[in-house]
Design a protein around this nucleic acid. Structure first.
Lengths: 353, 353
DNA sequence: TTGTACGCGTTATCAC
DNA sequence: GTGATAACGCGTACAA
């Protein structure tokens, strides 16, 4: 790196190799082993040499090489995370919380996005597998129904944790999920209790565990009250704003229109509120709406939207606890897996109901 | 891994080591070198042996070891990212976009959060430095004014890119920033043009480049119109909802109250709208408000909030382009650095002005 | 087209 | 307390 014409110039790939502990050892006339021990604060090294070594290391611009260390120790101190989309509220908060805890425990988190593509999810899983992550945390794409790309982790005994969007019960991995069944149940009961009788439902693809469960809970709630979901008032698709508007138009173009709507995510619920505003549908008098996830936007919009809180931080706590537990049990203490841990959800009542 | 009582049990740390290319070589009666070449699709290996090798590899459950490979190649194929908070709208979208591009180029992205702590930022920088990331991307904490923890990267010729919250001009690294000065200018001009004369300003800490620039632009706009910012109507602090409410109370408790407010982030602008609603202050008649970042919440709240769009995706494009350019120039073609690349911003007018 | 031999940087192990 | 040695798994210059 040198100075030319007022601009720094740099050649990205440095040719000459850096100083290693061997170089330090040579410079000090001691053995590499001693240097290594000194740098790792090994107790059996005299205070004097330790100091000498550290000073020389600093002087020579030495930096620890985690790649070599990982190779030698057979552990990368890195945990992989595959998430559909970082920018989804629930995941953003989950990640923030999880990362803070893993960071504190000395682990790096390699965060990857599948972007809800099964193909990409497979590639990422393989890549993290080769990268020798010490554990893998996954929230599945909406469409993952084949899990073979995770089998390697199981075979190698690498802790594998699914959260939120999880594989079926019995899958030999840690499973930590929200209580989506209860979420659906709460939503259904709430709409019924509020007096809704013509109830519509916009759900995500049933290939995803969360929507299957929410649907089941919701149906059970209605069934218990003798109300059944009309088939033409159930829409299933990816829950984007655009898709929501399409479904809403179809729902409200008929003779008879719904007086209650359960939207399986908040983006859809928000679209519904805006749709109603545009159409002059009064909320909650003509239409009651309930969303899912308690996205911050639901409390900001007017009218504010009733939603189901999923407690992303608490779920991250649970995942971190499970993960660190699994990683610490190097002794071979067995850990039960395959039975989902179900995290609580709550209904947050606001102005749309 | 074995089956007990209906549960899988697994011992996380596997004792026996895995198959390496050496094992494959032995099994096939050929040399490890040939196996390595075959797996890397080296042209000089016969189609026949290549096939045999790959089949045997699959059969033996072989997985490539990136750690060993990285060590040998002296490159990790990993890029480090230090960001204050993943959950901030701007950063969430930036990351999403950046990661997609780096992923496509064959790089892993190691995302870390400084949580706006200088201490943590230093630790993370050192950790990524040891991890031998091929490049580092950073958006600084609000309080970073000392940059020594990034010097190592420069000395080693490791591409270093700052974005959004950046160090001072002339710092020998790639600098890609939003046009915060212009953002402030646009905000100021807009409020003046709308007829505001008693203008308040809530800014973030001036230790951060973005707020210094926004402030400068805003002041220049007002000065040009002969309006000056009253000192008691300027508040500077971390832009949280709670801090916003405190400042707002003080701003509106006096005899004379502001008729215009520039909030240097949208969280603060949102708080202002809610504050006004509570106090019965009419918007925009009594008070005009403009925020910064064009957070999705600004378009959802009623009244929707005028804000400055920063185009996180475009900034990510620029960062990716710079990064990949720097990484590809292994030949030693020099790249100019130290001069900030400034990305455009735009004012998005909504109902609060 | 394939094999040999060595080095990447670190650390566990055994010896002194 | 410290040193010598041998891996960890891979890639490549050189030789055949």
């Amino acid at each position: 790196m040198f100075w030319i014409c007022g601009f720094y110039i740099m050649t990205p790939r440095k040719p000459k190799s850096e100083n290693s502990i061997v170089d330090i050892a040579k410079a000090l006339g001691i053995s590499p082993a001693t240097v290594s021990r000194a740098l790792n604060n090994n107790l059996r090294i005299s205070e004097a040499t330790r100091k000498r070594v550290k000073e020389m290391a600093k002087e020579m611009g030495y930096r620890h090489n985690s790649m070599a260390s990982s190779l030698r120790n057979r552990r990368s101190n890195t945990i992989g995370l595959i998430v559909p989309r970082i920018s989804m509220y629930f995941h953003a908060f989950f990640i923030t919380s999880l990362q803070r805890q893993l960071q504190a425990a000395g682990y790096n988190l390699m965060i990857c996005q599948s972007n809800d593509s099964v193909k990409l999810e497979k590639e990422l899983a393989n890549s993290l597998y080769s990268a020798r992550v010490d554990a893998l945390v996954v929230s599945l794409t909406l469409y993952t129904e084949d899990f073979t790309h995770f089998e390697g982790f199981l075979k190698q005994g690498i802790p594998l944790v699914f959260y939120d969007r999880v594989p079926p019960e019995g899958t030999p991995a840690y499973i930590i999920k929200g209580d989506d069944y209860r979420g659906g149940l709460l939503a259904g009961n709430h709409l019924i209790a509020a007096g809704c009788r013509r109830i519509a439902y916009i759900s995500g693809p049933p290939s995803s565990s969360i929507y299957r469960e929410r649907t089941r809970g919701f149906q059970d709630a209605l069934a218990k009250q003798g109300t059944a979901l009309r088939e033409e008032w159930v829409h299933q698709h990816e829950l984007t704003t655009e898709n929501a508007w399409n479904s809403l138009r179809r729902l409200f173009d008929g003779e008879e229109v719904p007086d209650g709507l359960f939207a399986a995510n908040d983006t859809t619920a928000i679209a519904a509120v805006e749709f109603a505003r545009e159409r002059g549908i009064r909320i909650p008098e003509d239409l009651r709406i309930i969303g899912y996830s308690n996205d911050p936007r639901t409390s900001i919009i007017t009218p504010s939207i009733t939603s189901i809180e999923q407690y992303p931080n608490e779920m991250a706590d649970k995942v971190a606890e499970t993960l660190l537990g699994a990683l610490q049990h190097t002794t071979g203490v067995p850990i039960e897996i395959g039975t989902p841990v179900v995290c609580p959800v709550d209904l947050v009542r606001r102005m749309t109901t």
